[in-house]
Design a protein around this nucleic acid. Structure first.
Length: 112
DNA sequence: CCACTGACGAGTG
DNA sequence: GCACTCGCCAGTG
C-alpha cells in the first residue's frame, strides 16, 4: 500500500527522542514533504486519541507551543507531557530550540 | 469547481 | 518583535 503523507509524518514524529522537541517544518522535511509544514499540523490534528505518536514534541518554528494559544485543553496536555520529559517550557509556552531542539542529519536546519 | 479554513514557514518592511 | 503577504495542500460546504 502506498504510504500516505500522514503515515510518513507520524513515522517522522515517532523518531523524535524523548526530552526533545522538533518543529512542523522539520518534521515535514524528514517526512519527505519539505515546505508542507501545514500538512504536518493538519495530520497531527487528525490523530486519534491514545495514539502512540508523541505529537506533543512538535512545536512551531518560533519555539512556541502552537496549542498554547488555543482554548482547548490540548495545550495543557502538551505542556505537561513536555515538562514531564524534562523539557523546559516557560510561562509564555516557549521552549529553547537551542537546548531541546532535535538534531539529526535529516532534521538539519539550513545553515545560514 | 470555487471559497474558505487551518496544530505552519519564510520573506519583507 | 510585530503586521502583512505569499506559498503549500487536504478537508469541508
Amino acid at each position: 500500500m502506498s504510504a500516505t503523507s500522514y503515515q510518513r509524518i507520524y513515522a517522522a514524529v515517532r523518531r523524535i527522542p524523548r526530552g526533545r522537541v522538533s518543529t512542523y517544518g522539520t518534521i515535514a522535511r524528514v517526512a519527505g514533504l519539505a515546505g508542507q509544514a501545514r500538512q504536518v499540523g493538519y495530520a497531527l490534528s487528525a490523530l486519534p486519541a491514545g495514539s502512540k505518536v508523541p505529537w506533543h514534541r512538535v512545536i512551531n518554528a518560533h519555539g512556541r507551543l502552537s496549542l498554547e494559544r488555543s482554548a482547548s485543553g490540548a495545550g495543557i496536555t502538551q505542556r505537561l507531557r513536555l515538562v514531564g520529559e524534562g523539557v523546559v517550557v516557560d510561562s509564555a509556552g516557549r521552549v529553547s530550540l537551542d537546548k531541546f531542539g532535535w538534531r539529526t542529519r535529516e532534521s538539519q536546519r539550513r545553515a545560514r
